[in-house]
Design a protein around this nucleic acid. Structure first.
Lengths: 347, 347
DNA sequence: CTGAAAGCGCTTACAG
DNA sequence: CTGAAAGCGCTTACAG
C-alpha cells in the first residue's frame, strides 16, 4: 500500500500539462528559470486542482520540517495563552508551524518533552525553562526565554527594570513601606522582579518580602496571607510579583474591609486577563510578548537558514532584554498616612 | 545538497551490522519476522548510535504524519491552558504530536488556520470553534468540541447540566432571586449554561440575566455592572457564566462593601486558576477536560487508523457529553433575608 | 528555458 | 528468517 494522499501531486500536474515535474516544481517555487507563460499556466492548473504541497516530501528532501517546537514546562501558567499566541504568530509569519510540548510541571520530563520534539524533526525550538533548569545539549538550535540574569539565555523581558518601574511608581505616590508578595523564592523571574523593586526604592523606603509557597508549607495551601495585619503594621503598598498573587492580595484585603486604593495600593506583574476587569482594576507591568517572541523566533530562523548542519546550539539575539511597561490602573493611588499608623515610627 | 540530518539512519545501522535495512526496520518496529538474537543486536546498536527515526521518511512512506492539529480560535481564552494541556496529554499518550493554530479571534481567519494545518499534513484535528461557526469540509478527520446543543459536535461538557448544578446549589441554600451574569449572548456555551440555571430553578425562584458585552456597548468597556443596586433590589445570588465574570462580580461587590458570602453568594464556571486563590474562594463548576480531550483524541485516532483514505469527515464519539462537577467553596453560603430586602415582595 | 535523473529515509509486499 | 527492490513527493544540480 502506498501513501494515501487525497490531493494531486507534482507528477499529476506535470503529466496533465505535458511538462516535467521539475518544471512544475520550479514554476511553483519561483526558483528555476521558467518562462512567464508556463509559470502562469502551471500555477493556474495547480490552483484548479487544489494542489497542496506535501510537507513530508519536501521535508525528506530538504531536511527541514518547517516546524518549531515550543516547550512549556508549566503549561498551567496563566501567562501561557499570551506566550503561545505570540510564538505561534511569529512562527506563522516566518512560515513555520508550532508543535507544543509540555512536561506537566515535572522537571524530569522536560528532557523527555524535548526529545519528543526532536524525534518529530523540529528545525528548532523555543524553550521556556522551568525554574532554574539548565538545558543540556539538544540536536537542534534552541532559543531560551527566561530572565536576563540567567546564563544561557536568548531573550527575556527585563524583569529587574519592571521591578524598578513599580518601585518608582509607588515611591512617587508617597509609599514608604512596601510588602513584596512572591510565590516561589527559587524562581529567577520572581527574584529579578523583587530585586528590581528593592533597588528602585528611594532613601527612607522599607520593604519586606512574603513568599507564599513557604507560608503555605507551614500554614496549609490556600491559607490567608495575614495582610490586614501588615496594614496595621503600616504597610501601604502591596507589590505582588505576579498578577495572580496580586489578585489574591487584593481580594484578601477587600474581604478584610481594607479599601483599595484609598487605604493601600496593590500592584502586580504581567497584565493577565483579569487585570483590567477586577474592581479596582489592577496596576501592573506588562512585557511585550510579541516583541520577545519575534526576537526568539527570528534568531532561531536565521540560524536554521544559515546552518547546513543541524546542531545543538543556543541561539543568541542582538536585543536580549526587552523593556517592561508600567500600566497604571485604579488599584494604586497616593499613600495617606493611615489612622492606625502610629506604629510606623517604632519599627 | 542532500538532507542534513545529523544522526544515523537505517542504512547506516544496516551496513555497520552487515544486514539489510529491511531487517533493521523490521527489528526496530517489531513487525516482520526477525530472529530474537538479531533483534536484540540491532536494537542495541541503534541505541548506541543514538538512532532517531526520521518522521519525514516515515510520513512520506506511510502517508501519516503522526501529528494532530489543535485549532483554537480564541487563544486568549483563560481556559486555554487546560484545553491545550489536556489535548497535548491525550495526543502524546496516543503517540501524536500537537500543532497549534490560532485565528486570533477573527472568524474569517479560522479557515485559514485550518488550511495551514492541512498543508502541514496533520492526520486530523481538534477544533474548538469560535461562537456558532460551522466548520466546512476539511481534508482530514476532525473532532469538534463545543456545546452538546450545537449540531455537528463530537464531544462537549454538559454545560446545561452544569447550570442545573448551580441552580440546585443556590436553591438548596435558600436563594430565590438570582442574577445570571454572562458575557456574550451569542455564545452557545454561555446560553446553555444560563438555560441550565433557569431550568434548574425551583418554584418561586426568579432570575434575571445581565449580558456584559451589551452593557459595555452602551456604557463603555470596563464599566461597573451596577451589582450593588441589584443587591438592593433583593438579589442574593450572582451566578456568573464564567469564572472571569464571577471575578468581576466578586470584586465589584466587595469594593461596594457587600460581604461575600454573608450578604450574597457568587458562583462561576470552569474552575479557572484563580478560583481557589481569591478570598473568598470561588464556588464553581468544573469540566473534566482530560476526559473530553481523551474522547476527542481517541475518536480521531480510531478514524485515522481505520480509514485508508484521508477524508474530510466529522468524527463522532460514543459519549458525546461529559458531566460537569460542582465545586463548593466559600463564595456561596446560605441566603439570609437582607436588611434592605423589603422590596423583595413587590417585584 | 526545459527535462531526465538521483536521492532524502522509510516501509512493505514479495521472493528466496 | 532475511534481503532486494520499489516507491511515497519533493528539490536540485546537471545536461541539453
Amino acid at each position: 500500500m502506498a501513501s494515501s494522499r487525497s490531493g494531486p501531486n507534482l507528477s499529476r500536474i506535470a503529466t496533465s500539462l505535458g511538462v516535467s515535474v521539475a518544471t512544475v516544481s520550479n514554476a511553483l517555487s519561483g526558483k528555476g528559470r521558467v518562462s512567464g507563460q508556463l509559470v502562469e499556466r502551471i500555477r493556474e492548473h495547480a490552483a484548479e486542482l487544489g494542489y497542496v504541497p506535501s510537507q513530508a516530501g519536501r521535508a525528506l528532501r530538504t531536511g527541514r520540517s518547517g516546524v518549531l517546537g515550543l516547550v512549556l514546562p508549566d503549561i498551567a501558567n496563566p501567562l501561557f495563552p499570551k506566550i503561545a499566541q505570540a510564538i505561534e504568530f511569529a512562527a506563522s509569519a516566518a512560515g513555520y508551524g508550532v508543535l507544543i510540548a509540555d512536561s506537566r510541571g515535572d522537571v524530569a520530563t522536560q528532557t523527555e518533552a524535548i526529545n519528543r520534539l526532536v524525534e518529530r524533526g523540529v528545525d528548532g525550538m523555543v524553550i521556556i525553562p522551568r525554574r532554574a533548569t539548565r538545558i543540556s545539549a539538544v540536536a537542534c538550535p534552541i532559543a531560551v526565554i527566561d530572565t536576563a540574569s540567567t546564563p544561557g539565555n536568548t531573550v527575556a523581558a527585563d524583569h529587574w527594570q519592571g521591578g524598578c518601574e513599580i518601585a518608582n511608581h509607588l515611591a512617587s505616590l508617597g509609599h514608604r513601606r512596601i510588602l513584596i508578595i512572591g510565590n516561589n523564592q527559587e524562581s529567577n523571574v520572581q527574584n529579578d522582579r523583587a530585586g528590581g523593586i528593592r533597588s528602585g526604592m528611594r532613601a527612607g523606603m522599607h520593604s519586606e518580602t512574603l513568599w507564599i509557597e513557604r507560608l503555605e508549607q507551614e500554614s496549609g495551601s490556600g491559607c490567608p496571607l495575614g495582610l490586614a495585619e501588615k496594614v496595621r503594621q503600616g504597610f501601604t503598598a502591596f507589590a505582588a510579583l505576579s498578577d495572580l498573587q496580586a489578585l489574591r492580595a487584593l481580594t484578601e484585603l477587600q474581604q478584610a474591609g481594607v479599601n483599595i486604593p484609598a487605604d493601600v495600593s496593590v500592584t502586580g506583574f504581567d497584565d493577565l486577563i483579569w487585570s483590567p476587569v477586577v474592581t479596582p482594576s489592577l496596576t501592573t507591568v506588562r512585557m511585550d510578548m510579541d516583541a520577545i517572541a519575534g526576537i526568539a523566533v527570528s534568531a532561531l530562523v536565521d540560524t536554521i537558514r544559515a546552518s547546513g548542519i543541524r546542531q545543538g546550539m543556543l541561539v543568541t539575539a542582538e536585543i536580549d532584554r526587552v523593556a517592561m511597561q508600567l500600566i497604571v490602573r485604579q488599584s494604586s493611588g497616593p499613600a495617606h498616612p493611615a489612622p492606625k499608623t502610629s506604629e510606623m515610627e517604632n519599627t
